[in-house]
Simulated scan of single mutants.
Amino acid sequence: MELQLDQLRALDAVLTEGTFEAAARRLNVTPSAISQRIKALEESAGLILVQRSKPVRATESGLAVLRLARQVELLTGDTARELGGAGRAVGPARIPIAVNADSLETWVMPALARARGDSYFELHREDEEHTTQLLRDGTVMAAITSTATPVQGCKVEPLGAMRYQPLATPDFVQYWFPDGSRPGSYANVPMIQFDRKDDLQFRHVRLQSSRPIDPPTHFVPSSNAFGDAVRLGMGWGMLPDLQTEKDRAAGTLVNLNGRAHIDVPLYWQQWKLDSPALSAAAQAIAAAAATKLIQPS
């Protein structure tokens, strides 16, 4: 199978942008040229690589070639920049990264700002227990994840842990837990949940009691708005210490169970590539994590 760079770039552009027209604009060619390159790539592979839907989606075979396309593009760009851009115009490297919402809102952005250099970042927000799926399908080159087991073709570095506490306003606690939080007392208490993948609140409840509950729940799929919902007394929720230090010091948010908490370990997973751009992002993330996250003693 012979793979040409312009065909691989066309595949990357189509699956990133979602349409042949948008891919053509990105690569400054015609939609017909994009179509011809994709067709030639599929003929060379002997497989259908993209589903001609809106948006265009990769087949299982297409995902495998997409990973290769993005690896080749990153390494080709790195080499061209080392050579001073000889041979073709070279822009900054594009580094897609999957990040959980709480990390994105608290410590990741300052880290990436320091790593910017010859890179720009395409951030994908996803729950830390699900970011590895984006690595598997080639959507991202790196991910902040709670999964220690490396995805095939990736390497893993531990970052530390984010501490979460079950918090609510004092008035909320007084109304719903007049005799104190205890096993079985959560069943009818309003709860805040990020989305249906968010299991932290239920993990806390399971630590208190084995009794299953189905409480009234507000779904608030924004890290900042989630915190606001708790501060407004709409319900209780598991909030990271990095977001609530001032609230807890002022007493405007209190722990439902004294010192109850859950530490969520975080890891940096990335493709095994000798890429200066990807390494710079990894180093910046590790440096920030060392000061912001809980580190093993």
Rank of each mutant, 00 (worst) to 15 (best):
R26K: 14
N100W: 07
A58D: 05
R114Q: 11
V140I: 05
V56G: 04
K155R: 14
R81A: 07
V156E: 11
I97Q: 08
V56Q: 03
G62Y: 03
Q51W: 06
V72T: 13
S146E: 13
D137P: 02
A143Q: 00
S53A: 05
R26M: 13
I34K: 02
V65E: 09
G153K: 10
A115L: 11
K39I: 13
G85H: 03
T149H: 14
P96R: 09
Q71W: 15
V65D: 09
L112N: 00
E129G: 13
G91N: 08
Q133K: 12
S53K: 07
L135F: 01
E73L: 12
Q36G: 02
G91E: 04
S35F: 10
V65G: 10
A40H: 07
A80P: 01
E128R: 01
T79R: 15
A69M: 07
I34F: 07
Q152D: 15
G85D: 02
L134Q: 04
M141V: 07
Q133N: 10
R125P: 14
L75N: 02
I48P: 13
L112P: 01
L68C: 06
T149Y: 15
Q71D: 15
V29W: 03
T106C: 08
R125V: 11
T149S: 15
G91T: 10
L134N: 04
F121P: 03
A69F: 03
G153I: 10
R116M: 12
H124Q: 12
A33L: 03
F121E: 02
E60I: 11
I34G: 05
M109T: 07
L75K: 03
Q71N: 15
Q152W: 11
E43Q: 09
V50Q: 09
A89F: 12
L74R: 13
T132N: 15
L123Y: 06
T79K: 15
G62A: 00
L112F: 01
A64M: 08
N28H: 12
A93V: 04
H130E: 13
V29Q: 00
E105R: 13
Q133D: 09
T131G: 03
F121H: 06
I48K: 15
R57M: 09
S119W: 05
R57W: 09
V29S: 00
P150G: 11
H130D: 06
S32Y: 12
V65C: 13
T145Y: 00
S146T: 10
N100K: 08
V72N: 00
R94G: 12
R70Y: 03
R81L: 12
W107C: 05
S44M: 00
V108W: 11
P96F: 07
M109V: 13
Q152I: 11
